[in-house]
Computed example of a mutant assay.
Amino acid sequence: MAIRVTALLPEHADQVLAIYRAGIDEGNATFETEPPPWQAFDAARLPEHRFAALGEDGTVLGWIAVSRVSDRNAYAGVVEHSVYVAPTARGRGVARALLDVVIASTEAAGIWTIQSGIFPENAASLALHQRAGFRIIGTRERVGRHHGAWRDVVLLERRSLAII
């Protein structure tokens, strides 16, 4: 399957939010229970570090985006990312292609740490991130409630070797 990674644009909004919805519905991707309206999604993510993976026909196969972790100057080089792949496109290298592009774009911008919180039940995502150079920092136990149950989150980070 040919994958083309491009900037995530407003014209991708419906497909991006549908992929986000699929991740929400599966129950092991996020604490969110509804995808946000596009305007909120757009405002919460850094425009220079969000990408869509497109299939040959232009269909969005997956997306990745980063957000600031803090407005404090000391954390200017630290971002949190999310990566989602359409259920029909999983296992084909889409998430890895997206991770590689966001790693390159953040390093070029002087960002030294990318972090992510992943439910421990999401073994595929944990393995993918470790293959991409992320390391497990630890588990935040019972950090939030999700559908009435306490959930743990594994905190991962990737430190840039080019900057540090």
Rank of each mutant, 00 (worst) to 15 (best):
L17C: 05
V153T: 10
G58K: 02
A29R: 03
N122K: 05
A40N: 13
P10F: 06
G110D: 01
I3L: 11
G117M: 03
G23Q: 10
A123S: 08
A22T: 02
A76K: 12
A7R: 15
G148W: 05
R72P: 05
A40F: 05
P36S: 11
P35G: 07
L126R: 09
R90M: 12
L161G: 15
I111L: 00
F51V: 10
R151V: 08
T6K: 12
R45C: 13
E107R: 05
G148P: 08
V101R: 15
L98V: 09
A29T: 08
W150H: 01
R50P: 08
A18R: 14
A18N: 13
G77Q: 03
T139E: 13
F41K: 09
G110I: 00
T106Q: 06
E32V: 14
V78Y: 10
D14H: 10
V5I: 11
T139I: 14
L8S: 06
L17P: 04
G138S: 04
V69D: 06
E32P: 11
W150M: 01
L98Q: 09
H129I: 07
V78Q: 00
V101S: 08
A2N: 13
Q39G: 11
Q115K: 13
I24T: 01
R4Y: 04
N122R: 04
A40V: 15
A109V: 01
Y20L: 08
H146Q: 15
L156E: 00
L54M: 10
T106K: 02
F51G: 09
E34G: 11
R135V: 13
V16E: 05
S160Q: 00
D152W: 01
